[in-house]
Design a protein around this nucleic acid. Structure first.
Length: 256
DNA sequence: ATGGCCATAGTGTATGGA
């Protein structure tokens, strides 16, 4: 089973990229973030025509998540039942016996702001819910894929000195990510040897991609049972080079 | 020079993203 996550930064703009990417990467499960579409505008027909079922939870202008799958999608849950949230940032479903959570973690804007506090509260609630979900689904396997808006370590940052203590890299955010991992999750990307300076997001400004001024903030976390099945994990930079790209690249993993 | 870009809403220019 091949699984992937991609922050498309507007599915309206990026639908052609999504369909093109799926042609060359016919993954079994794909989690999308920042669809930025209300549900009535979601392009289900085009995605179905590409051979995928799809479930989604969106809103106007901001956020929005979706899960595409070649196999039937069951037991869909929208949002974290432990966290009241107007913002559509989570959708969960079971596919092929595996529990998938697609997550768009809040950005946090800047350390010390209200949005930063919201991010930390959101992550604390995610941990609480994840603990329960692992009891329910851990044995068969659970994966959380998404845009975490957290660079786990300095090696995931193009310029650690510049980013030290900043949002996406702060100690409290990293501790919140560690909190998820402590429940028994594994960062699939770090199961394998990877190129130096591997990133999943590059700023649109300052020729960020061309200069590889990026961060690794999109992750696939696997429960122990799935980590044992994982035989590969990589970032696909190809669509970041296309015309009018998302600022994020897809992250893929293979489960044997 | 401490910004620069991009998407959205909407038709000016602000907000949010990361």
């Amino acid at each position: 089973m091949k699984i992937a996550t991609w922050n498309v930064n507007s599915l309206k703009v990026r639908l052609p990229h999504l369909l093109q990417w799926l042609e060359s990467n016919p993954v079994d499960v794909l989690c999308l973030q920042e669809t930025k579409l209300t549900d009535n505008k979601f392009p289900s027909a085009e995605i179905n025509a590409a051979g995928y079922q799809v479930v989604f939870s969106g809103q106007k202008t901001y956020n929005g998540v979706a899960i595409l799958a070649r196999l039937p999608i069951t037991d869909v849950v929208k949002n974290n039942p432990r966290f009241e949230d107007e913002q559509q940032r989570i959708i969960a479903a079971t596919i092929g016996g595996v529990r998938f959570i697609c997550a768009y973690v809040p950005n946090g804007q800047a350390v010390g702001t209200d949005k930063y506090a919201y991010k930390l509260a959101w992550l604390a609630a995610l941990r609480e819910w994840l603990g329960e979900e692992l009891v329910r689904h851990g044995e068969q396997g659970l994966a959380i894929l998404g845009d975490y808006n957290i660079a786990p370590q300095d090696r995931d940052v193009h310029d650690p000195a510049l980013w030290a203590g900043q949002v996406l890299c702060s100690d409290l955010e990293r501790a919140a990510l560690t909190g998820l991992i402590e429940l028994g999750m594994v960062d699939a990307f770090r199961l394998f040897e990877q190129p130096e300076k591997s990133f999943s997001w590059w700023d649109y400004r300052q020729l960020g991609y061309q200069k590889n001024k990026g961060l690794r903030i999109d992750h696939i976390l696997l429960s122990g049972a799935l980590a044992k099945r994982c035989s590969a994990c990589a970032i696909d930079r190809v669509p970041r080079k296309w015309e009018q790209p998302s600022d994020h690249a897809p992250v893929l993993a293979t489960l044997d």
